[in-house]
Design a binder for these strands. Structure first.
Ligand code: SF4
Ligand code: SF4
Lengths: 148, 148
DNA sequence: AAAAAGGGGACCAGATTGGTCCTATTTTCA
DNA sequence: TGAAAATAGGACCAATCTGGTCCCCTTTTT
């Protein structure tokens, strides 16, 4: 399954919401969750992870919440995914520490590593700024026009 | 989790094996499974799916097995994935028939659709021929050099 | 002191995945 | 003609992953 997890989706939504509602102040999880119908507790966990990753900062207490610490231009989709669900590996063996029982006779390891390398390069250069509403820049890959 | 399923890995391995061992004859699942230490029954299911998808053909009985029906140049990674685990959707809402409770207030839907579009374009133009051992063509995406 | 907020551990239920087992059918060959 | 080898495919299961909830703690403001 090649799918974004809900954690990642919620993280991206929250970061964009913080960016859009930026008034210098802090926005509490409750508000973000209500605006986007996200389960509050779960979003709480996601925000905690984003805090540890250094993309947002928090204050407790009344009028507390989260605020962006970096401009979206410096937040990449790759890093967000990595923060929320660990390193991106297309296959177990891409993680050097792990292996699989097919490894010794595997005829797809190298090509898959190359695919992964390029997937990583793509999501590492794709910033959340390009997710802003009405962002004009198309997300292009220049891989030719033969789209099946 | 952005990971290839084992079914897909086994399918890709088998297709490449069929290509490499092509002597005009049929190669039984047993042989492929043994050579690559793949659980035989599971690979059986995978091959059935690839047959239905039209990439291989089979004969039963002694000296039976599978053979490639299309050259690897015409088999794309995207189609293999699609054959083995259904259509590729980065998020539930990418499937028009499904939706999610965040949909009405979602601020990432459009950008994610664009990302998916490009992911699809990439895997739809990537053929298994480029997976052959020693294939010289690098798998490039030309997205610039800012690899983080 | 109370309320509002984040930090974080424990836990649970449903879905997905990888894998096995069994039976039926077809084909070849001794 | 009967055994063996092979695909076709349904049923099923165990482990893992995922989304979500609950509870308790600390901090901050009012
Ligand atoms: S060695 Fe081959 S089968 Fe095993 S995880 Fe890597 S790519 Fe997949
Ligand atoms: S609507 Fe938004 S949250 Fe829902 S599946 Fe689509 S992208 Fe994800």
């Amino acid at each position: 399954m090649l799918r974004f997890s809900k954690r990642v989706e919620y993280g991206l939504m929250a970061l964009l919401e913080l960016d859009a509602s930026a008034n210098g102040g802090y926005l509490p999880v409750k508000d973000i969750a209500e605006r986007h119908e996200i389960p509050q507790d779960l979003l709480g966990k996601v925000m905690q992870a984003l805090t540890r990753a250094g993309y947002v900062a928090s204050t407790k207490g009344m009028h507390g919440g989260y605020r962006l610490v970096q401009p979206l231009e410096r937040v990449t989709v790759g890093k967000v995914i990595e923060s929320l669900e660990g390193p991106v590996y297309l296959t177990p063996c891409c993680d050097d520490s792990k292996s699989c029982r097919q490894q010794d006779h595997c005829n797809i390891r190298r090509p898959i590593l190359r695919v992964q390398e390029h997937l990583l390069r793509y999501i590492s250069q794709l910033t959340l700024a390009e997710f802003r509403e009405g962002d004009p820049r198309p997300i292009e890959m220049n891989i030719g026009e033969q789209c099946v």
